[in-house]
Design a protein around this nucleic acid. Structure first.
Lengths: 203, 203
DNA sequence: TGCAAATTTGCAATGGATGAAAAAATGATT
DNA sequence: AATCATTTTTTCATCCATTGCAAATTTGCA
């Protein structure tokens, strides 16, 4: 595929970027609910209607890089190292996902603010959960394919669901307690280890 | 507290019930998105505005008994049997939750249709996920309290998150494949067992 | 240049959601 | 039973997200 994009494509990318940056800036300045799509579009210098040809809704702007992150994880699973155990692969995928901040092509500094938005705004929390769930579904399918002769679909789902479920709940609880990112990360790590070892390892 | 409710309370319960039944009936007949709140309110013989003093939004009508289900699970955890292991308690709670259809006080027959709605309508899926995670959060806290000297908050979160995460993802995937309720239940059971034993038990 | 396809825009309409004040229903008191 | 305070419902007005449609604009290409 050619890296040379036509004027049309370049313009679209610019508009998309402008919408994302305008939206995130407004959300930080005035809050999510307080910022209207009309304002976002105006700040990006396009019509309100055009916003909806770039994003399905107001919530989606915040998760603009979700697809890229998922694709990266899917790729890692599909290209798993020969002989690598499921556990090792999952640990590698999750730590990579936590480290990688964002789509290299787009703003990176806004990440912490975004995380805060995602945790506090109900609509975004809901959207994030939905995305997380869809991600798990796809990861489970990829895992099943990558270990076709070892994991049936249910086992793959159980593996993904338990590891990600444990990590997610643990990190959410820590975050709500106002703990530092390091503590949150450590909690997620511990939760994953518990999920890997099984519940017998505690209590 | 007295079981004798005043006319005011009784009327409110009746209105609430009327709204729920009207909504679920309309959702079945015309679909969720196609039914407007105005129609629901009209069918329940109240004003549109009144709808919002009973439910925060359109989605919430569908989950009218969510609180009762959660309360039941919380109660089971709080009143855990002396000497019962975490694993045994969780198995008991989940199977009870699957068996119990609904709030005894309210319509029960609509449950299968409701389940179908929850799986197919995007807005309801999202709402359901949010409710599921809030539930997990509360269950994790209850589990921590019930086993205060054995589980710290992170371990409790890992336990709840891994078991429920595994069961949820597995059952959703099975449901999407159009499998029978029995198969779905079996998959959930298997996924929970994997989560309990740990990922080492597979692959 | 000139045409075809893609994109943006303006406009109108729908429907969810909220705020505020008037109206109606209810419970308590005399 | 009549009256008053409280709760609930209704009415009305408004905001905003979202969508469909057709006109206008831009871009890619011959």
């Amino acid at each position: 595929m050619s890296d040379v994009l036509g004027l049309r494509e370049r313009k679209k990318l610019r508009t998309r970027r402008a919408l994302i940056e305008a939206a995130l800036r407004l959300f930080q300045e005035k809050g999510y609910e307080e910022s209207t799509i009309a304002e976002i579009a105006a700040a990006a210098d396009v019509s309100t209607r055009t916003f909806f040809s770039y994003f399905a809704g107001k919530e989606d702007v915040v998760f603009f890089d979700g697809q890229a992150r998922v694709d990266a994880a899917l790729k890692m699973i599909a290209e798993r190292r020969a002989g690598e155990s499921v556990v090792d692969l999952l640990l590698r995928v999750t730590s990579h996902s936590l480290d990688t901040v964002s789509d290299a092509d787009l703003t990176v500094e806004l990440t912490p603010a975004r995380r805060h938005l995602m945790m506090t705004v109900p609509a975004l929390r809901a959207r994030g959960l939905h995305l997380l769930y869809e991600t798990q579904r796809r990861l489970a399918e990829a895992l099943h394919l990558a270990y076709a002769d070892e994991l049936d679909p249910i086992e793959a789902a159980a593996a993904i669901g338990s590891v990600m479920g444990a990590a997610h709940l643990a990190t959410m609880i820590c975050t709500d307690r106002g703990e530092t990112p390091e503590q949150v990360w450590a909690a997620g790590r511990r939760a994953m280890e518990i999920a890997i070892r099984g519940l017998g390892s505690i209590g």
